[in-house]
């Protein structure tokens, strides 16, 4: 389920990229279409978590709630619809002369440069480096699903667009596979029963002393994390999102640092804009998909 939501989020992120990048190059209708599908994803999110953005559903140990009734059919509907939507996008853009002129051969980034600049995710794959943490360093259940990693060697804005559209298609496939598996797992517990990290259910508080103590400890203090430092990377829609965490053994982290893919992507702007026109800057920054909230964290 976490993986399913991660992939939905990936589609959502790429949709916003596609919508806004095309909008910036003058293709306004792409924006409407992409946001139409985005609203479908937002509906699913709202159904599961109760909120559109800033959801809090993943939890240490599992999920915060059970998957609600009606999620499966609606998600299935979305999975069936999404490939058609992707075809729509490609019909709109693939032979669009303006789009091709503005994107092909613009913002070139060679594979060596991309690696030296620490680029990850779609930007690296659009430069011809076959690298995806979901496949190469699997987390969650990515080892158990079947998906392709799209790679384009050109390294221009157009290749980045192609990579993202293909990734949306692959993500839809992953969502589909997750759905099939989840439907078989209906009725299973959605969170671990390790009471050191997860709050006990409400009704247990009235009958069990240990539950009450655990509840009190987690609420007032949190749980203790062993001393040490870790760096955990995942493949976010924009590339490698890493979290570096130092713990001194207490319930609050000593230092948290996020490796933001946008921060690194924005750094590549200078290299990409080499020999480019000022007007292409919009296309290039759009294609690097740098989100400022991610950049300054």
């Amino acid at each position: 389920m976490r993986m399913l939501l991660c992939e939905l989020n990936r589609i959502h992120s790429h949709l916003i990229f596609l919508g806004t990048a095309a909008l910036e190059l003058g293709a306004v209708s792409m924006f409407w279409y992409c946001f139409r599908e985005r609203e479908l994803i937002m509906d699913l999110y709202e159904m599961v978590t109760g909120q559109r953005m800033h959801t809090r559903y993943f939890q240490i140990g599992g999920l915060a709630e059970d998957i609600p009734e009606g999620f499966y059919p609606q998600c299935r509907e979305f999975v069936e619809w999404m490939p058609h939507a992707l075809n729509d996008y490609r019909t709109l853009l693939d032979r669009n002369k303006i789009w091709l002129e503005r994107t092909k051969g613009v913002g070139l980034l060679s594979a060596d440069d991309a690696i030296a600049l620490g680029q990850t995710g779609p930007i690296l794959r659009a430069s011809g480096v076959d690298w995806d943490l979901r496949r190469d360093q699997p987390y969650l259940a990515y080892a158990n699903v079947d998906f392709q990693v799209p790679v384009y060697p050109e390294g221009d804005v157009y290749a980045r667009y192609r990579v993202r559209v293909d990734e949306m298609r692959e993500s839809t496939r992953i969502v589909d596979q997750c759905l099939r598996r989840l439907e078989r797992l209906k009725g299973q517990p959605w969170i671990t029963d390790d009471r050191k990290v997860v709050l006990p259910p409400r009704e247990e508080l009235h009958t069990s002393m240990e539950s009450l103590i655990h509840h009190f400890k987690i609420v007032t203090e949190g749980f203790r994390v062993p001393e040490g430092e870790v760096y955990v990377p995942i493949e976010s829609p924009r590339g490698e999102q890493g979290c570096y965490l130092v713990s001194d053994g207490g319930p609050k982290p000593w230092r948290v640092h996020f490796r933001a893919p946008s921060f690194v992507a924005l750094e590549a702007t200078a290299t990409c804009t080499h020999d480019a026109l000022v007007a292409d800057l919009i296309a290039i920054v759009g294609s690097l998909d740098a989100v400022m909230g991610d950049t300054d964290r």
Binding site: I16, T20, F31, W32, Y33, F35, R36, R38, E39, M42, R52, M53, H54, G293
Partner: peptide, 15 residues
């Protein structure tokens, strides 16, 4: 400026 901007964009969008 931040996350709200995405929702600001979506009020313009088709829905």
């Amino acid at each position: 400026l931040a996350c709200c901007a995405i929702e600001m964009m979506s009020i313009v969008s088709s829905r």
